Computed example of a mutant assay.
Amino acid sequence: NWVYHAFKDGQIIDLLFALGKGFLGDPNGVVLSDEMLARARQASLDGTVFLMASVEDIIHSKLLVSWKATRQEDFQDILLLIRNSKHLDWDYLLDNISRYPVRTLALLSYAISCEITEDHIPIEIATEVETLSKRLFQWMGRVA
């Protein structure tokens, strides 16, 4: 109910309809919705036109499945997407990933530590992550 495995010339093609059901306590994961379809853009490959998920929805999917230690490369992929996207819809993205606050904070902290600048992440978000980090160290009795 979430993936279809197709085979052509010995190659496997996965068509995903939902991703991460049950991961991080989320019963639905990322489900293909009308909103996702409306935000998708057309792409083509070898003359075949298809819809490709928005960058925000790809980030959401990668954040959800990055919970495994074997998927650490997903954070690197997300940073590349953030760096190379000129107009991320941060409100839409944060609304979706707010279901995973620890993963979201880890991602944003990682992005800032990798010198992702306000050109890529709104300064308000970067400031809030820094403030949360300082408050955590103060709470632990350490100087931030």
Score class of each variant (00 low, 15 high):
120 H>L: 06
37 L>R: 13
61 S>V: 03
28 N>R: 08
25 G>P: 02
101 P>N: 08
119 D>L: 09
6 A>S: 10
37 L>G: 01
28 N>A: 09
69 A>M: 07
100 Y>W: 15
7 F>C: 02
5 H>A: 11
89 D>P: 06
83 R>H: 09
139 W>Q: 14
81 L>Q: 11
22 G>K: 09
96 N>E: 12
69 A>V: 07
109 S>A: 10
117 T>E: 08
77 D>L: 05
97 I>A: 01
2 W>R: 08
87 H>M: 04
143 V>N: 13
37 L>I: 14
49 V>M: 05
33 S>C: 05
40 A>P: 04
111 A>Y: 04
39 R>L: 07
121 I>C: 02
144 A>Q: 08
82 I>T: 09
16 L>S: 11
127 T>W: 05
60 H>G: 00
95 D>P: 03
142 R>P: 01
98 S>Q: 13
121 I>R: 01
111 A>N: 05
63 L>G: 06
94 L>Y: 03
139 W>H: 13
107 L>G: 06
9 D>E: 15
95 D>E: 15
34 D>E: 14
19 L>F: 05
133 S>F: 07
30 V>R: 09
130 E>T: 10
21 K>F: 00
13 I>A: 08
11 Q>N: 11
81 L>V: 09
53 A>Y: 04
12 I>N: 07
16 L>G: 01
43 A>Y: 01
52 M>K: 14
47 G>Y: 03
63 L>Y: 06
59 I>L: 05
69 A>Q: 12
55 V>L: 00
46 D>P: 00
133 S>L: 07
110 Y>K: 11
115 E>F: 05
86 K>N: 15
110 Y>H: 14
2 W>A: 11
35 E>H: 05
7 F>R: 08
68 K>W: 03
48 T>M: 14
116 I>V: 15
105 L>A: 12
88 L>R: 04
29 G>H: 04
82 I>E: 11
44 S>V: 00
24 L>F: 02
57 D>W: 01
29 G>W: 03
90 W>P: 10
83 R>N: 12
120 H>E: 15
15 L>A: 14
74 D>N: 10
71 R>L: 00
120 H>Y: 12
73 E>H: 11
2 W>S: 14
62 K>T: 07
3 V>L: 09
6 A>E: 10
129 V>P: 00
107 L>N: 05
